[in-house]
Design a binder for these strands. Structure first.
Length: 292
DNA sequence: TACGCGTGGCC
DNA sequence: TGGCCAAGCGT
């Protein structure tokens, strides 16, 4: 990506970026981290109200760490992938105990925390602390595939290659690099979208390799769209929903109502126990962890 | 590298 | 209607 295009993209971001609370001037590393975990595979609109509740209720990592896992899972609500909530809870405990209750700014330190991978570590370093780090999510992969490589969409992900792709044009200046990282994501979210990209309003239209190539269709391997209906994921979600909606421990008969196939039902309940999302009480009832 | 992991809105 | 999509991670 050429320097003028980077300039225009940053300029566009400064005038057109969404006014999200985790981007406010008074944001904290903790607020940014919570947002990044919640936003993994979950749309902004659904994250917003839950993020507000969490930051009011648990304004620092130590506050979240002091809550029970069950409380955390209830507060997570229906954001999906509730294992993220347990990992964030665990990460908060490590941050409170080993990092002075301050979210680390160093990528490698962040990577060592549970639930924080290649994307989230760099997103926190860049967005909370202004560090220079290639922040590559699905939006950035798509923008780079089009604007830089002239392809219709990104191929299968490869962390090493994806990071190198962005590193290659990331400005040396730290705050500018951080701003560009945010701008690339925002462009992918608002303009260079998966379906129906809004090329007419794109700030890098004139520099886009995909435009110059005549906007060819994506030709790579078909992306596997995962099923949901009838899968263990659906059944686990139904089981957890019963426990979230109930005050105390429940009998297994209550859980049996959510799915007719007993084999799949029991397998899913077992897997929830293994994952630590459900616990069994001494008298054989089932509950969210730490709530009995 | 491929897969499993929740949930809901959109066209 | 139902496939597609949404700021990934861990194994």
């Amino acid at each position: 990506m050429r320097e003028p295009a980077i300039d225009r993209l940053i300029g566009w971001f400064e005038t057109s970026a969404r006014d999200l609370p985790w981007r406010a001037p008074d944001r904290t590393g903790w607020g940014v981290l919570v947002s990044e975990i919640m936003l993994q595979q979950t749309p902004v609109a659904r994250v917003l109200p839950i993020w507000q509740e969490w930051l009011e209720r648990w304004p620092a990592p130590s506050a979240l760490a002091a809550a029970s896992q069950g409380e955390v899972l209830r507060a997570w609500g229906k954001l999906g992938y509730p294992r993220r909530a347990l990992r964030l809870h665990a990460a908060a405990g490590v941050i409170a105990a080993e990092h002075g209750d301050v979210v680390p700014s160093d990528v490698d330190t962040l990577l060592a925390l549970p639930g924080i991978g290649a994307y989230t570590a760099r997103a926190v370093a860049a967005f909370a602390y202004g560090r220079r780090a290639p922040v590559v999510d699905t939006n950035v992969r798509r923008v780079v595939a089009r604007a830089v490589h002239g392809a219709g969409d990104a191929g299968p992900p490869s962390t090493t290659r994806d990071l190198a792709d962005v590193e290659a044009f990331l400005p040396a200046d730290e705050p500018r690099a951080a701003k560009l990282s945010a701008a690339l994501m925002e462009l992918g979210a608002l303009v260079c979208t998966a379906r129906t990209p809004r090329c007419a309003v794109c700030p890098v239209h004139d520099d886009c390799a995909w435009q110059h190539a005549g906007r060819p269709e994506y030709t790579g391997p078909a992306k596997a769209v995962q099923k949901f209906a009838g899968t263990d994921r659906q059944v686990r979600g139904l089981l957890l929903d019963v426990l979230r909606g109930t005050e105390g421990p429940v009998e297994k008969a209550r859980l049996d109502l959510v799915w007719s196939q007993s084999g799949q039902r029991d397998r899913c309940l077992d897997s929830l126990l293994v994952d630590g999302l459900v616990e069994q009480t001494s008298d054989g009832l089932f509950a969210l962890p730490g709530e009995h």
